[in-house]
């Protein structure tokens, strides 16, 4: 186990742009690497991304292993896995982190099994024990509990939830090394026939989310929430039942079987606060709940709550904010 040293981060890219989760991983990775007194490296697979690779250094990487190949432009599961596993066998980092995006959660398990090591899913916290072993903290049981997990094998691997770790301030004077690696290609077996951008919101990126639940009486009433959301530069979210009923697209769904979000402000309107809904938004910076039932569980999680009819409260809120801004 001693031969494993250092911390490595998978740098995720889409269309040649590095996904922000990668910088968050470097931020946390740097903190842990410093505590251990080891090096922080990153692995990037893509095509013609040398300029972008420098960004990883500016955000904390000491070394970047760069695989440049046209085949790596898009997510190629088996080739990504094959080359990352090869690199890990060569470099032997003691800790390896993926972002818990859908890509990371699809790729991570393959790499872990290829290396015969453990993988801890969707962590929201990382720490070290007194012996320098990684403590991986993650929600389980639909967010009802937090488990502290240790890994006996090396590398200690985890996927880390988006938006919970802090990235460092970009420092364009930071120096590091970009090491170009030769790709070894295997049959990819999966063919991407078509790729499209889904229209509509990317709720995971929103700073403000105004969500509606079964307290809404009809689909059109999402407009009331949209007015407030728009005023605050945010987007509309939803609990699951309204998505299931086709009132709003699934890209708006917050919760265990929808999106996990962490906005600066989450406004829950007519949402009771089921464990499955809370699992998707409990880490929001500030939570406001509007519900006519004072015993609704959502109030237990809220920073601010209004007991009342959302049809009265939300429009007033919108008007009041408008009024104060004008005045």
């Amino acid at each position: 186990m001693k031969e494993y040293k250092g911390l490595m981060v998978f740098a995720e890219q889409r269309e040649g742009r590095i996904h922000p989760i990668s910088y968050e991983l470097l931020g946390k990775g740097k903190e842990i690497a410093d505590r251990l007194g080891v090096e922080l490296s990153s692995v990037l697979l893509g095509h013609q991304m040398e300029e972008e690779a420098k960004e990883l250094i500016y955000y904390g990487a000491d070394k970047v292993f760069l695989y440049d190949h046209p085949a790596f432009k898009d997510f190629d599961l088996l080739n990504y896995k094959h080359n990352i596993a090869r690199l890990v066998r060569e470099v032997k980092p003691e800790i390896f982190l993926f972002g818990a995006t859908r890509l990371g959660r699809s790729l991570g398990p393959r790499v872990a099994v290829a290396l015969d090591t453990g993988l801890t899913a969707d962590c929201t916290g990382l720490d070290l024990d007194e012996d320098g072993n990684l403590i991986q903290i993650r929600p389980a049981f639909t967010g009802n509990i937090l488990a502290h997990i240790k890994t006996a094998t090396r590398p200690q691997m985890s996927t880390i939830r988006y938006k919970v770790m802090q990235k460092k301030v970009r420092d364009a004077n930071r120096r590091g090394e970009i090491i170009k690696k030769d790709a070894e290609l295997v049959p990819s077996l999966l063919t991407i026939k078509k790729k499209e951008k889904l229209g509509g919101v990317n709720i995971a990126e929103a700073d403000v989310i105004v969500s509606g639940g079964r307290g809404l009486k009809k689909a059109e009433d999402f407009g009331i929430l949209a007015a407030l959301a728009e005023l605050l530069g945010g987007v509309v979210g939803s609990s699951r039942p309204l998505v299931d009923d086709g009132w709003i697209g699934k890209e708006h769904q917050v919760g265990f079987s929808g999106n996990t979000v962490k906005p600066k402000l989450y406004v829950a309107c007519g949402i009771s606060g089921s464990p499955q809904h809370l699992a998707g938004m409990r880490d929001s910076d500030v939570i406001i709940a509007i519900n006519s039932d004072p015993s609704a569980p959502i109030f237990k999680l809220a920073d601010y709550g209004i007991v009342g009819d959302l049809y009265e409260v939300v429009p007033r809120l919108t008007n009041e904010i408008k009024g104060r801004r004008a005045g």
Partner: peptide, 30 residues
């Protein structure tokens, strides 16, 4: 198994401010 759960905690929601407004809508909103 490579991983083991060493500790389990039930997260407390106490950390939130939990300020609840109720009564007249205008006052709540203000």
């Amino acid at each position: 198994s490579a991983t083991a759960v060493r500790k389990v905690v039930v997260p407390s929601e106490e950390a939130r401010k939990g300020k609840i407004f109720r009564g007249i809508v205008d006052e709540e909103v203000g």
